[in-house]
Amino acid sequence: MTAVRPVDAASILLLDRSGGRVRVLVGRRSSRHVFMPDVYVFPGGRRDATDRLVPVARPLHPLACQRLALRAGARCSDSRLRALGVAALRELHEEAGIAVGTPHAAPAGGGLPFRPDLSNLRFLARAITPAGMVRRFDTRFFTLFADEAGIDPAGTTESHELEDLRWVDIFDHGGIEMPDITVLILEELQKSIQEDESLPFGRAVPLYYTQRGRFLRDLL
């Protein structure tokens, strides 16, 4: 059996702190998905090859880039790191109808109707899907405060990929079925918010992966 190599992916925890508590946007994956159907997750997906070519309004924060580059491989480039941020915001637009950036006319043949603004993305965590799964991803999880990006929390739109979009309290998400890794990332967010509610750009980032059957957590 051929080993499945993990592919780059990005996910975004969009945070609403307007009501005196912190809420995060989640949606239910369609039952048509082969990978993790019918569970609630953060918007996200695989990095597309064209994400490297998307012009951005503002780049990633330098400290976020430094953390992203750690253990990313010798062939990691600035364009690949930028593409991870682009992928997160592209997926947020495709799955929840939210555009973060400067509006502009979409190029002929399709494309984003905005230039992504990556400057407020914090790198929160990284997780690599264990071997043996039908799909494997090397996912970088970003956070974004809705108020910093000028996002109206009421402006989300369901898609065929994410249904039943909800804002849930990060400390009280009972009754919502989430994959184990989603719960783990949410717990990382809880700890980070408790340590510093501003979520500094340069904080250490956990990496979850499996080695010789052991589930491990390192810090980047």
Rank of each mutant, 00 (worst) to 15 (best):
Met1Arg: 15
Thr2Asn: 15
Thr2Glu: 15
Ala3Asn: 13
Ala3Tyr: 11
Val4Trp: 15
Ala9Cys: 05
Ala10His: 04
Ser11Cys: 04
Ile12Val: 10
Leu14His: 01
Asp16Leu: 03
Gly19Ala: 12
Arg21Lys: 13
Arg23Glu: 08
Val24Met: 13
Val26Arg: 06
Arg28Ser: 09
Val34His: 15
Phe35Cys: 14
Met36Glu: 09
Met36Asn: 10
Tyr40Gln: 09
Pro43Lys: 09
Pro43Gln: 11
Gly45Asp: 07
Arg47Tyr: 07
Asp48Met: 13
Ala49Gly: 12
Thr50Ser: 15
Thr50Pro: 09
Arg52Gln: 07
Arg52Ala: 03
Leu53Glu: 13
Leu53Tyr: 12
Val56Cys: 11
Leu60Lys: 09
Pro62Gly: 06
Leu63Ser: 08
Ala64Asp: 02
Ala64Asn: 05
Ala64Thr: 06
Ala64Gln: 04
Cys65Tyr: 10
Gln66Cys: 10
Leu68Glu: 05
Leu68Met: 09
Ala69Lys: 11
Leu70Cys: 08
Gly73Cys: 08
Ser77Ile: 03
Asp78Met: 12
Ser79Asn: 14
Ser79Trp: 13
Leu81Ile: 08
Gly85Ala: 05
Val86Phe: 05
His93Glu: 07
His93Ile: 01
Ala96Arg: 03
Val100Glu: 01
Val100Phe: 03
Val100Asn: 03
Pro103Trp: 03
Pro103Cys: 04
Ala106Asp: 11
Ala108Asp: 14
Pro113Asp: 08
Pro116Thr: 03
Asn120Thr: 10
Asn120Cys: 15
Arg122Ala: 02
Phe123Met: 05
Leu124Glu: 04
Ala125Cys: 02
Ala125Phe: 01
Ala127Leu: 07
Ile128Val: 14
Thr129Asn: 11
Pro130Ser: 06
Ala131Arg: 09
Val134Arg: 15
Arg136Gly: 09
Arg136Trp: 12
Thr139Leu: 02
Thr139Arg: 02
Phe141Gln: 01
Phe142Lys: 00
Phe142Ala: 00
Phe145Arg: 00
Ala149Pro: 03
Gly150Leu: 05
Gly150Asn: 07
Gly150Phe: 07
Ile151Met: 01
Ile151Thr: 00
Asp152Ala: 01
Asp152Val: 00
Glu158Val: 04
Glu158His: 10
Glu158Pro: 02
Asp164Asn: 11
Asp164Cys: 07
Asp164Ser: 11
Arg166Gln: 12
Trp167Lys: 04
Asp169Ala: 06
Ile170Cys: 03
His173Phe: 11
Gly175Thr: 03
Glu177Leu: 13
Thr182Tyr: 10
Glu187Ile: 06
Leu189Arg: 04
Ile193Ala: 11
Gln194Pro: 03
Gln194Met: 11
Glu195Arg: 15
Glu197Pro: 05
Arg203Gly: 02
Leu207Ala: 13
Tyr209Leu: 12
Gln211Thr: 08
Arg214His: 12
Leu216Pro: 04
Asp218Gly: 08
Leu219Pro: 01
Leu220Glu: 06
